[in-house]
Design a protein around this nucleic acid. Sequence first.
RNA 1: GCGCCCAUAGCUCAAUUGGAUAGAGCAACGCCCUUCUAAGGCGUAGGUUCCAGGUUCGAGCCCUGGUGGGCGUACCA
Length: 582
Amino acid sequence: MKTQIQQLLQQTLDVLITKKILPEEGVYRIQVDRTKDKAHGDLSTNLAMMTCKAAKKPPRELAQLIIDNMPASELVIKAEIAGPGFINIFLNSNILAQQIEAALLDERLGIAKVQQVQTIVVDMSSPNLAKEMHVGHLRSSVIGDAVTRSLEFLGHKMIRQNHVGDWGTQFGMLLAYMEELRAQGKSGSSNLADLEVFYRAAKGRFDESEEFATRARNLVVELQSGNPQCLELWQEFKDISIAHCQEIYDRLGVALTTADVKGESAYNDDLKQVVDDLEACGILEQSQDAKCVFLDEFKTKTGEPLPVIIQKKDGGFLYATTDLAAMRYRQNVLKADRVLYFVDARQALHFQQVFMVAKKAKFVSQQISLEHMPFGTVMGDDGKPFKTRSGNVAKLADLLTEAQQRALALVQQKSPEKDPQEMRQIADLVGIASVKYADLSKNRTSNYVFSFDQMLKFEGNTATYMLYAYARIVSIFNKAGLDMAKLEGSVVLEHEKELELAGKLMQFDEAVNAVARLGNPHLLCSYLFELAGIFSSFYEACPLIKAESETQKQSRFKLAALTAKTLQQGLDLLGIKTLERM
RNA sequence: GCGCCCAUAGCUCAAUUGGAUAGAGCAACGCCCUUCUAAGGCGUAGGUUCCAGGUUCGAGCCCUGGUGGGCGUACCA
């Protein structure tokens, strides 16, 4: 709808240019907004105010010219001038009804695929394999997943890359500790069951013993230079850790598989080459015994240089090196047009730097779009980064379990008549959905407070509310004995609430496109929440089963059907499953 | 020191990236279940958008200067 009106306005501009009312050389951006107030019509444009300077006419006068020269269209019932020069557009509700029908018949609910398919690489989740996944990995996984699903739905070719940390100093630590245990005659593998405990024990040894620390560092060198024994042990760690991660992804419903794992170690063979190539193009400098790139853009005001360290003085490589190698791989092998990095906002400077280095060194083309999609920190009630009561970093697995347990308690309280197995099923889904939705519904870039009480609320912009809205519609269909796929008659929009619901339904594609463009799933959450709210309000005001006539009944059920499908599709894009009953 | 981000109702968050009267949900108060799932709906109240200037038809959003907080800033990622 919006894009069609935009096209209409573009045609109008062309007419005005031909009539020399507007100068030809101007660049005109056509902005069409949803109105907040019904009295302002359905859509409004500020076109007259934006172009009045170029036209050298008062905005209201120009607005009248725009209206007069607008080609006739069945979409528009009337257009009127308001305020300082807004043009308010009132849409034809018959067209709206037709669009509802069309969307209902379409698997994609009327959302078009993009004309220009891009190959988009998504760097997401990327946990450190030496530890268990914790709350910090939630956002990257969940937000990355939702944005990827949305882009995929729009027809882009998506390649997920789980850039796991599997090559750093921590692994030397683990290897050294494992060796120590084996030397003491203790079997190593049984101690791997709880990776977190193992990691903490190893870290403890690392911190308390200089001798141990040295051994750990040496083992990293051994590992990286290909010592078979080290490699074997390392592989063992990795396999266990990846299996842990996969369990979490499966529980979360995040569409990542072991095939998407492309860890830091995968770029090992190219790291030396990265250094050599930077050297060859003359931007690598020796500074304090390390090899660095200095970028003019990142000099401090006082002129102090800010380095991007590529190789440490001991010869070791850093994550900047690995990221550069990964960028080349993503462009040259994966053929990426865009690369999206769902990584903590605290790494913003790092990404600015490596993106620039990559372009300066011509590792990647100027066209490729490298985008850091930063997200804020998950906070506790105290306003500090989220920790458990004991002060440890919260393990993601435990968090999910707690959410499911709390959800179970609520289900038992709310619908005690259900059998225990169904309760469990509902609770498991609601628990996971609540955690994910709480994360997705907040603005990506800001920090947010993690609160079970908040996310498991039935009221407000929560997963439960959304799931309930869907389940309720399904239930109405069951009660009425109607099939969503077999509705007769045509949609007629009469009641104010019917019009409102229909209008909202047709905004689904704007929401999905906004998520894809900006990488902000909360825009889709807000949309679905508003949709569910409007539906509830419609449901209250417009009887479905007890409609006045059969035609009205069919029409209203069609609206309900499209609402259910939209909720389901929307939640699916967010990576959240729906329930038929709750 | 320098850089980046943030500050919106008592609380948790929005505001279509410069649009019209700043919106939701909690919490508070008042209604609506013998009638389609009340995990719902309707309504009331709640604001100097941290402060001070500036840009323009129009600023929560952009610019300048403050205040308060978070983060980053040479060999972790």
